[in-house]
């Protein structure tokens, strides 16, 4: 798989009409900035600072990372400083194509400072590929600081090929801030994935909706932890849906804490095999069992 193919998978072939920063094998490969968005490297190749001016709207900003050789272990800090009244889409993601026998590892810490009234859509895709026995490891950490009335929608997808991942998402929300997180994970073979959410609803009328839809196949193992604290008049909904195929294991450990009498927090979790009724319905349309299972899982993760 060449760099371009991998890049297209990670970015879902999105076109970056705004600024971008592409990192390949631990080095800056290409960067473009504009009047509204500036990207500055941190010292010692340790990451970048992205500055987005007040009132920046309708821009898609890309910051993909790819690793195509084994034996790279990197830790990168990317800080997004987003002004007031912005409306932007940020596409990040990491692709590892490791054909070697050494481990490739990318750990990224993305911190977002989202200014008042700003709207951010953040899309992050993770993908691993390669025949080699070397492990493909990704540990993304996202830290979100949502100012008054800001809105952040975060969509993360990890489809196939990542041997081990620990994803950590931490957020604090001011008055009227709104956070929507949708996470999709598919693990197979003996892969492991852990997702940890830590959300503090500090502001009045702040809202958070966390949805995790995961499929664990074969002997893989997934764990979901959430710790949501309602510290004000706020609302949170946490939902974890998991489908188990084969001998996979899935754990869901929710914690919701109301530290304020007007906090309203909901948690739902469903873990189980594909519902028999769903299979029967698709079989009765003429699909065979494999096809039916594929349709259900693909739909679930779409």
């Amino acid at each position: 798989m060449n760099n371009e193919e991998l890049l297209n998978i990670v970015t879902d072939s999105a076109k970056f009409d705004g600024a971008y920063n592409i990192r390949i094998n631990g080095k800056l490969f290409d960067r473009k900035v504009n009047d509204n968005v500036n990207i500055v490297s941190k010292p010692n190749n340790s990451g970048i600072d992205i500055y987005i001016k007040d009132n920046t709207t309708s821009q898609t900003i890309g910051i993909p990372v790819i690793l195509t050789s084994g034996d790279i272990t990197e830790k990168v800090l990317n800080d997004f400083h987003i002004g007031k009244d912005c409306d932007v889409t940020i596409i990040a993601g990491c692709g590892i194509d490791n054909c070697s026998s050494c481990t490739s590892q990318h750990d990224g810490i993305h911190t977002f400072y989202v200014g008042e009234n700003s709207k951010v859509k953040y899309i992050e895709r993770h993908y691993g590929h390669g025949e080699g026995s070397g492990q493909r490891v990704m540990n993304p950490e996202t830290v979100l600081h949502l100012q008054k009335n800001s809105k952040m929608e975060m969509i993360t997808t990890q489809i196939e090929g990542v041997d081990s991942t620990v994803r950590k998402t931490t957020a604090d929300l001011m008055d009227g801030a709104n956070l929507v997180v949708t996470e999709k994970v598919l693990t197979s073979n003996s892969q492991t994935a852990t997702s940890i959410f830590d959300v503090d609803l500090n502001g009045k009328n702040s809202k958070a909706k966390l949805t995790s839809r995961v499929v664990a196949k074969d002997n893989s193992h997934q764990d979901f932890y959430s710790n949501v604290k309602g510290n004000n008049d706020c609302y949170a909904h946490v939902e974890c849906d998991a489908i188990i195929v084969g001998n996979a294991k899935v754990g869901s450990t929710p914690k919701i804490v109301a530290n304020h009498p007007d906090a309203s927090l909901v948690h739902e979790a469903t873990i189980g095999k594909i519902a028999g009724e769903q299979l029967l319905k698709l079989l009765s349309l003429g699909l065979d069992e494999k096809e039916a299972e594929g349709v259900i899982i693909d739909g679930f993760l779409k």
Binding site: R213, A275, Q278, K281, V295, I296, G299, F300, L301, K302
Partner: peptide
């Protein structure tokens, strides 16, 4: 009728 999450 059967419900499906994710299927349109």
């Amino acid at each position: 009728p059967v419900k499906f999450k994710g299927l349109r």
